[in-house]
């Protein structure tokens, strides 16, 4: 029995060169991406809650958008940002953008200009980009008192007093909702400082990595909604009825997931057979 071909096969599988795994994965992601098909994804409760939070805003309310990611997480967070901005602008909500990852802000700004143009919104009147100030905790705490303490001007140096969009917007008191886009620990600071100290309403779009960590905040009611990963982005796109890159990436996701599931099953079969016979 010891040298049966079946055992030999599984032993070979157990010591499979991982480069073969890499190659199969590459094919599984690249091919669906090139075929370019995607179908709407039904929403799950956390995404629905995030949507509802934005939906609860009225025309003229202020939504603060925080860009807390950089290019590395853009594939996941950009589609969400687009959807959230579309949602806000379609309801005539004022958008105030800022960010805690300096280098991500140009990305956020480009998205803001792009979506604002779709809805004929005017810079300074309907939306503004405050830009970046160093020291995220310091910035968050200062805004609880007076936004103009820390952001005397917008990203290109125009004083806030000259921007109609900032009329009556002085502190968190005047911001109906914070929508943060997070790829790291900044979300913890938003919750542990801004929410805990000022009771700010907030909802987040996060990378799929950060999402599980944000679930306790959601359950505790510290945050109102959660859009997690590319699937969350696809769900949000479905909710606002405007499909984009989130939905488009889902077929590749599907195949990659099935492949990894296959690998786990195969790995376990190999483990099972070689252990029993060995």
């Amino acid at each position: 029995m010891e040298n049966s071909p079946r055992k030999g096969f599984w032993e070979a599988m157990n010591s499979l060169d991982r480069r073969i795994i890499f190659l199969i994965l590459l094919v599984c992601v690249a091919v669906p991406l090139l075929l370019n098909v995607g179908a709407p994804i039904p929403p799950t409760p956390p995404v629905q809650l995030a949507y509802d939070a934005v939906e609860s805003l009225e025309a003229g309310d202020v939504m603060m958008v925080s860009i807390d990611f950089d290019a590395t997480s853009a594939p996941e967070l950009m589609p969400m940002l687009h959807s959230a901005l579309r949602h806000a602008f379609s309801k005539d909500v004022r958008v105030v953008m800022l960010g805690h990852i300096a280098i991500g802000l140009p990305l956020g700004h480009m998205a803001l200009e792009e979506i604002a143009a779709e809805y004929d919104k005017e810079y300074g009147v309907d939306y503004v980009d405050l830009g970046y100030r160093p020291g995220y905790i310091a910035v968050m705490i200062a805004m609880g008192r007076d936004i103009s303490d820390i952001f005397a001007s917008d990203y290109q140096g125009t004083p806030l007093a000259e921007l109609p969009v900032m009329t009556g917007v002085r502190s968190y008191n005047d911001i109906e909702l914070l929508f943060g886009f997070e790829h790291g620990a900044v979300i913890d600071y938003w919750v542990r400082y801004t929410q805990a100290r000022f009771g700010q309403r907030m909802t987040f779009g996060t990378t799929a990595v950060m999402a599980p960590d944000a679930y306790p905040y959601l359950q505790a009611g510290q945050i109102e909604g959660l859009v997690g990963g590319l699937k969350g982005a696809a769900e949000y796109e479905n909710l606002i009825g405007h499909l984009g890159l989130g939905t488009r990436g889902m077929p590749a996701q599907q195949w990659a997931h099935l492949l990894v599931i296959g690998f786990i099953v195969l790995g376990n079969l190999g483990y099972f057979f070689t252990r029993r016979k060995g």
Binding site: D146, T167, N173
Partner: peptide
Amino acid sequence: IGEVLSTNTDFQDV
């Protein structure tokens, strides 16, 4: 010292 939208019913003088 400031103004707010018609939907607000409070103001903080800082």
